[in-house]
Design a binder for these strands. Structure first.
Lengths: 218, 218
DNA sequence: TCAATGTATTCTGTATACAACACACTATGG
DNA sequence: CCATAGTGTGTTGTATACAGAATACATTGA
């Protein structure tokens, strides 16, 4: 068995992301380093390192003498993220070898079909969703692009997890995914890209419509 | 006058980027923290913080017990970056208000024309290039997208600066920029996006063709 | 009462200290 | 002679210490 040897800062980073997702860390909230460090059972050093990493991923902000703060949620920023994700994933499709894409498309159809059968809690939906997109991107050879996608998706997920209620319109998503998958299986990349775009934009719209406005600052 | 108050880690970050650009920091080279910190006249703390920030921007890598190292240059990664930049900037154009875009197009035509008049050293070309793209993106309302663009451009520039010789084919670049600008001034966004794409891909190709292969690891 | 200025306290930004790990070298056994 | 265990040195990862800035509070004057 491979024992995992991870440094504290990556663990702290994960924990912070988790807290942002579960809402334990409230958007816009200032961060007291000594207090948070004590809470996590580590010193300020790895905490600060994790904060800095998250900052350059766009998940946290800092002002010079004033320390770090969780970025406040804004509907505007969330709306901004969706088209970026769509464009990036579309590009990933364009750059993937067409024949491999077709094969992946077949698998994606299965996965999408499996979706609609069940009505599960939101958390599971997201992880399934992730899995689905991971499969779709698995044949893209552009590693740098995948890095960027993952980074942006991190920010997107933050909103998704915070704003979505438990059991909302799971079927619609499945239908959209199925559309993408069928286009891919048929080798029609432009159609798939278009479907992907609507998937992201609709998904964003659904979430915003269902969101309690409590979280938003503006 | 506004006095600039910057913390060490951001200054260190800039300095490291500068060294990567000028080649003072060699690609693939391991980083000795105490030595580098002493060289910069700071302690390890802000240095490490800068390194971590650069790492999550993809400009530096780290392995757990082994510290940081400047990422080695690979032609493959450079080729990967160009289409990403093209897609992102194209998206930025699509998202910009069309009327403002036309006005900006007019200014860009002027700037592009100014380009071809002079034959200057490469460093200047890059800064002009940057300025030009900044103007082009100035009317894009999607702030998150601009963040992503800046991050990716950082990586792209690193290659550009390291690989390009002094005085190479400046006119061609100006011509491509002029094409983009004219399309924008005419309000033809798809054409501009297409021209933008060729600009990035050609630019990448030019650089790779002229590059001494010395830098590349693979 | 309220504004303004001085003071105290809290927190960040940076430096230093320390412990554990990684790698190189040596020595020892086969 | 080779392999391997032992030992030592250098470097990273983390903790702590310290200085200066930012904020809150109090005090003084109108």
């Amino acid at each position: 068995m491979a024992i995992e040897r991870k440094n504290l800062r990556s663990q702290v980073r994960s924990e912070l992301l988790e807290r942002m997702r579960t809402g334990l860390a409230k958007p816009g909230e200032g961060i007291n380093e000594v207090q948070l460090a004590a809470e996590l059972g580590v010193s300020r050093t790895p905490l600060r390192e994790a904060l800095i990493a998250l900052e350059s991923e766009g998940q946290i902000t800092s002002e010079n003498g004033k320390g770090f703060r969780f970025v406040p949620l804004s509907a505007g920023e969330f709306e901004d993220l969706a088209p970026v994700m769509a464009a990036l994933e579309s590009l990933a499709l364009e750059l993937s070898p067409i024949d491999e894409l077709k094969m992946v498309g077949a698998r994606l159809v299965e996965l999408a079909d499996a979706f609609s059968d069940e009505l599960v809690e939101h958390k599971l939906v997201i992880s399934r969703d992730d899995e689905w997109h991971a499969v779709m991107l698995s044949v893209c050879p552009n590693k740098r692009l995948l890095d960027v996608i993952e980074s942006v998706r991190g920010s997107f997920h933050r909103y998704e997890s915070l704003l979505v209620a438990e059991d909302v319109k799971v079927e619609r998503v499945a239908a959209e995914h199925a559309a993408i998958a069928r286009a891919l299986a048929a080798g029609d990349v432009p159609a798939a890209a278009e479907a992907l775009r609507t998937n992201w934009m609709q998904g964003m719209r659904r979430i915003l419509d269902n969101a309690s406005t409590a979280y938003f600052t503006a």
